[in-house]
Design a protein around this nucleic acid. Structure first.
Length: 338
DNA sequence: AAGTGGGACAACCGCTTCGCC
DNA sequence: GGGCGAAGCGGTTGTCCCACT
């Protein structure tokens, strides 16, 4: 039987034997893989090159980390997945020693179920509607919300003011309680940070515990240094977002303080031409460039304190530079979805 | 002990992207 | 710019193992 990917006869399929692994390792460590299509021939394997590549990448590479995922890794996967969706290769880049296949399998077999058990849609990370919940088997600390679109925030309270290294997932087996937070103050539009948002929280491991209101523990008053500096006369109209605390509302995820190329603010006359498309592209660019850096870096508590995204200022600035309300919605979407 | 269902993980398939000519 | 092969990627399927009946 031939192999569809290469059309060659006598190509073995299925699980790899230890002998095959040994041949592949020996070949690649001594000669490198070069062109994968030539590897089977040179290594003396009856496999197609694609299969060899996959076996090496997913299983045989020496730098691979074996064993189960740590709570920290799990949290990273959840955080990045919220931003990027099912882009497993991108997610895996933030987990040294893990492969996209591994991340994907872990998501499908474990994290997905945990999120669903918390009443969260694993695709959107949003609260599953009551109708959807009723048709799924979901465990119990979900509370109906005043705004359907409100974004639920699952947070391990011990992580709120701590470094990333302490931000563990511990979705089901945590020694510290997981609480599910809901923004009780703002609809999911532009959220100005002039006043601290409040949340209602509930100890998921204590069904008898009352729902409690609290200010967002991640909130910081805007500082003078955190004002947004936009040169509206600049033809590139790029702005330095280094002062932004790009705020991930699950685990105090902040972007780095390094200067970055920010989304372009459209100037008058520009907005009619595919403005949403441009914004979307810039949004993706920004996320690719910076959001993931932030995940990989240890988060500096002092940085957290000095940064907060001043959306009211941004709003007024956008208005003054000719951005339409349509564009603003995009920015609001940007702010709340990431 | 045998059958079965489900979870975890490995591997495959097909499409897209990239690089070269 | 188009064609082609290689590599990359995400969805899906296959296989193994184990708990349960």
């Amino acid at each position: 039987m031939g192999h569809r990917c290469c059309g060659k006869q006598k190509v073995k399929r299925g699980l790899w034997s230890p002998e095959e692994d040994e041949k592949l390792i020996k070949h690649i460590t001594t000669r490198g893989h070069g062109s994968w299509s030539s590897v089977p021939k040179h290594a003396g394997l009856q496999r197609c090159g694609k299969s060899c590549r996959l076996r090496w990448i997913n299983y045989l590479r020496p730098e691979l980390k074996r064993g189960s995922f740590t709570p920290e890794e799990e949290q990273i996967i959840i955080d990045v997945h919220r931003i990027l969706g099912n882009r497993w290769a991108q997610i895996a880049k933030h987990l040294p020693g893990r492969t996209d296949n591994e991340v994907k399998n872990f998501w499908n077999s474990c994290i997905k179920k945990k999120l669903m058990s918390q009443g969260l849609d694993p695709k959107t990370h949003n609260l599953i509607s009551s109708h959807q919940r009723s048709s799924n088997k979901i465990g119990g600390s979900i509370r109906s919300q005043p705004h359907d679109q409100q974004k639920p925030i699952s947070v391990n309270f011990t992580t709120v003011n701590s470094q990333k290294k302490n931000c563990s997932a511990e979705l089901n087996s945590s020694s510290s309680p997981i609480v599910t937070l809901y923004n009780a103050q703002q609809p999911p539009m532009v959220q100005t940070m002039a006043t601290p948002p409040t949340y209602q929280y509930h100890d998921d491991q204590n069904p008898n515990a009352a729902w409690t209101s609290a200010k967002d523990p991640t909130f910081h008053e805007p500082s003078a240094e955190s004002t947004l500096n936009i040169s509206s006369s600049s033809s590139s109209s790029s702005m330095n977002l280094s002062v932004f605390g790009l705020w991930d509302n699950s685990n105090c995820l902040y972007a780095s303080a390094q200067p970055i190329e920010a989304p372009r603010i459209l100037l008058e006359g520009e907005q009619s031409k595919g403005s949403e498309e441009v914004l979307q592209q810039e949004k993706e660019k920004l996320l690719e460039m910076e959001m993931f850096k932030a995940i990989d870096q240890d988060m500096d508590a002092s940085l957290m304190e000095s940064t907060s995204f001043d959306f009211s200022f941004l709003e007024s600035t956008l208005m003054s530079t000719g951005v339409t309300s349509h564009d603003l919605n995009s920015m609001a979407d940007f702010a709340w979805n990431y």
